[in-house]
């Protein structure tokens, strides 16, 4: 019975946690990198810190579309990486790339056997603490990332498996590469079912 009482995270729940993190991380990057004016963002308490979410209807719509589909893919283990790319609108040059690497873990084997589905037994508080650490790091990246002095926009590329169907409104994209890139690995967090690795790569300007 002690197993029942134990905290358990289902695959779906884990995917939701991951997607929530992605939402906040993407919004945070958009705010920190100044892609959109700061007055369009609204403060919200999450993970014990104040994070900013865009109020722009277009961005909101885009993110909800993206994250609902991504959640589905993450549940089905179709996605290996999500890349948030920041593009110079004028010449389509990729200036920054935020890679969110998703790795799939086995969770708690005993509990999974008992529950007859893959579940993890990590404490939610601990997960949120880990996510908070990552978010703080994301906020701190502004100190070393180069200043974006041109009109920029962003896009999110999902690195999915080849056997994955392309849903409506989605399209295949070219993989991006940043010339003279510098990679910075941020902290990772894990829900015991998914491990999220955040890497930011940016164009090094001499």
């Amino acid at each position: 019975m002690s197993q029942q009482v134990k905290n358990s995270i289902t695959l779906r729940g884990s995917a939701q946690i991951v997607c929530e993190y992605l939402k906040f991380a993407i919004n945070s990057v958009l705010f920190q990198r100044g892609l959109y004016p700061p007055e369009t963002f609204k403060a919200e308490q999450q993970y014990g810190i104040t994070l900013l979410l865009s109020e722009d209807a277009q961005i909101k719509n885009f993110l909800t579309n993206l994250l609902t589909q991504s959640e589905e893919w993450i549940v089905n283990k179709k996605v290996s990486k999500l890349s948030l790319i920041i593009v110079n609108v004028a010449n389509k040059e990729v200036l920054e790339c935020w890679d969110f690497n998703v790795q799939y873990e086995d969770g708690d084997a005993e509990l999974s056997k008992e529950m007859k589905e893959t579940v993890g037994s990590k404490d939610l508080k601990k997960i949120q603490q880990e996510i908070r650490d990552v978010m703080l790091q994301v906020a701190a990246t502004i100190s070393y990332l180069p200043f974006l002095d041109c009109r920029c926009s962003f896009d999110v590329l999902v690195h999915a498996k080849t056997n994955c169907d392309i849903p409506e409104k989605w399209a295949e994209a070219e993989p991006v590469a940043i010339a003279n890139a510098q990679n910075v690995q941020l902290k990772t967090f894990s829900t015991s079912l998914h491990k999220m690795e955040t890497v930011v790569s940016y164009k090094l300007v001499d």
Binding site: Q58, S153, D155, C164, A171
Partner: peptide, 20 residues
Amino acid sequence: APTKVLHLADNPAAAAQKQM
């Protein structure tokens, strides 16, 4: 398992591009 890169067709970058 080479990955396939997917993105939403109406992403902000595309929109910005169009606008531009």
